[in-house]
Design a protein around this nucleic acid. Structure first.
Lengths: 146, 146
DNA sequence: TCCTTTTAAATTGTGTACTATTTATATAGA
DNA sequence: TCTATATAAATAGTACACAATTTAAAAGGA
């Protein structure tokens, strides 16, 4: 017994569980991130910088799927906590170069056990996690097309 | 060549593609939702009410994984657009009963083609979509445990 | 009945996100 | 060189999202 409005039901959408899942998992991070004084957005920003050491705002935004409107206040906050530095590029003053500090490097050690704690909240098998990972990146790729 | 910090890389996390995917797909909705003057949060709220007709804020929040702090302003906005009504429950004045209006019912027809437009942005096969759906709800279930 | 506890919304304060615009700098032609 | 265009961040304005608190109402016992 289906009708033309079935697709409008929450339980028939793929977007809703994505949205809800994302929110709930970010919420799970909170107690762990509180211990190192980071929000989730600040945490993923630090993850890029732990790996790459420095980067301008635009490139950082491409990694994180965020624009300068979101990143500017996040980066100012991270700078105020001394985890990063913000400096204009001498060769092209339009670029702001964001780089990690020693303080920021130290934070990496404190953060190292967080991914393990989170994965213990999600009881996916290795296969299932790999499947989910693959499907999410495929979808993300589709969505990035025009 | 792996080290103890590998799990801290963005590309090794399951949470990040979830977070990014959710944001990107919500962004895809925007032009379609603009046409019917709804935001994504307002849209999923209306989806529940198109289906259930009326509900108190707490139950609505359980469906949407949102609390009254988020829902109160969303519901006031939807009321100002005449899509819903907000009334205290006569039997228990603590409960606020949210119900759909005729105006709100009419909106359902205008929204009916949105799910199709969105699924055309995501090139998952039926199997893949079903897999993703299943994994997301499994994860959501895991996350809802204490 | 009175008081304590519980419950449901609303409120407060902080921090994203996003669109659109502005500002500053750099580049590319005419 | 001068000007138009393009680019990168920052800013402004709107709308969530959440934790913590407050308010109001209901329920449950002594």
């Amino acid at each position: 017994m289906s009708n033309k409005y079935d697709s409008l039901k929450l339980e028939n959408q793929i977007c809703f569980p994505l949205y809800a899942c994302s929110k709930e998992i970010v919420r799970k991070y909170k107690p762990f991130l509180d211990e190192i004084d980071l929000t989730y957005t600040q945490y993923i920003t630090m993850m890029v910088l732990w790996d790459k050491k420095q980067m301008n705002v635009k490139t950082l935004g491409e990694y994180l799927y965020l624009d300068s409107g979101t990143l500017t206040p996040v980066l100012k906050k991270l700078e105020s906590k001394s985890f990063i530095k913000r400096n204009r590029d001498k060769d092209d003053e339009r670029n702001l170069c964001v780089s990690i500090t020693d303080e920021g490097e130290k934070l990496k050690e404190k953060a190292a056990d967080i991914p393990g704690k989170i994965s213990r909240c999600v009881n996916l098998s290795e296969d299932e996690a790999a499947q989910l990972y693959k499907l999410l990146y495929k979808t993300l790729g589709d969505l990035s097309q025009i």
